[in-house]
């Protein structure tokens, strides 16, 4: 059974400039343990989709219609009931870790708040659980970090803290809204690795929002390419990357930075060695696109845009 089932979802934003249909009838679903990625440029409606599904857009700004069922609750028609799911069965990993935490509260205070309090849990229990969570996201000296304020940690560390917060509740769905785009490339890889490892262990479903095909390529089971509020192309990772059907997707693929010849080494050597990192996958993606565009002459048809 799907953790999240979205059918014909639309989000309309009422702005001064008029009503804008930021999300225009998209459908997809995510199963437990699966990662589904929505990829698109900024302004394509991908983040609006994520925020709309979490009902984090103000009611006096956004009108949501269509169907979306998360963990048995209708997101569109039962906003009150859904609000209780936030921080229970669904959690968010936000875009910019540097601004995602209150600057005047300690890490421990904010993490502690995310931890569900079962009857009779003492401060010591809470503390122990906090330390445990930070250990899970591989933060060194967790007990020390708890007493620190957000400005004392690096962006990568903060993103780990935010992931720990998301994990605190044992969610069935993680919504990761560009979780690495504000981070250094080297840090990005670590965060993505961590997410994948956690998914393997907890079997959480992930909705990944990104503009970076390298990221999408690395983590996704399925990819939906979004443009102007619609999915222009959907499919398995290999299909999208190797046989893009639309000009838009091809452009996205072309936008991935090309690396490889800078050190004079044949780039496939670099591909085969080392752990997966966005760099490597970027390369892979690029290389594959290059090879496939040379080798393939007949376009491969995708089986429908919607699963």
């Amino acid at each position: 059974m799907s953790v999240l089932e979205v059918r014909d979802l639309a989000v309309e934003l009422m702005t001064t400039a008029g009503v804008i249909r930021a999300v225009d009838g998209i459908s997809f679903s995510i199963d437990a343990g699966q990662t589904v990625t929505i990829i698109g440029e900024s302004g394509s409606g991908k983040s609006t989709t994520a925020m709309g599904l979490l009902r984090l857009l103000p009611d006096d700004l956004a009108v949501i219609s269509g169907h979306a069922v998360l963990d048995g609750v209708d997101v569109v028609t039962e906003p009150k009931k859904f609000a209780k799911l936030r921080g229970r069965s669904v959690a968010l990993i936000p875009q910019d870790a540097m601004t995602a935490l209150s600057p005047v509260h300690t890490i421990g205070r904010q993490l502690g708040e995310a931890i569900p309090r079962k009857g009779g849990a003492s401060t010591a229990d809470l503390n122990r659980r906090s330390v445990e969570l930070l250990e899970q996201v591989r933060i060194p000296e967790p007990a020390v970090q708890l007493k620190k304020y957000p400005h004392q940690l690096s962006g990568g560390m903060l993103q780990r803290v935010l992931i720990a917060m998301a994990l605190a509740v044992d969610p069935v769905l993680l919504v990761a809204d560009e979780p690495t785009s504000a981070l250094d490339v080297t840090v990005q890889a670590g965060i993505l690795d961590l997410l994948m490892e956690l998914q393997e262990r907890t079997h959480v479903a992930i909705l990944m929002i990104t503009h970076d095909l390298g990221v999408a390529r690395l983590v996704s089971d399925r990819i939906h390419v979004m443009k102007d509020g619609k999915f222009v192309e959907s499919g398995e990772v290999e299909q999208i990357v190797e046989h893009p059907q639309t000009e838009y997707t091809k452009k996205l693929l072309a936008a991935v930075p090309k690396l490889g010849h800078w050190d004079g080494e044949p780039h496939h050597d670099a591909l085969e060695a080392g752990p997966p990192s966005p760099y490597a996958t970027d390369q892979q993606a690029t290389v594959r696109q290059a090879t496939s565009s040379q080798a393939t002459t007949s376009p491969v048809t995708l089986n429908g845009a919607h699963p």
């Binding site: 979490l54 936030r86 921080g87 708040e113 605190a168 509740v169």
Partner: peptide
Amino acid sequence: TVARARGT
């Protein structure tokens, strides 16, 4: 928004 998302 992030705090709201974690159920505060």
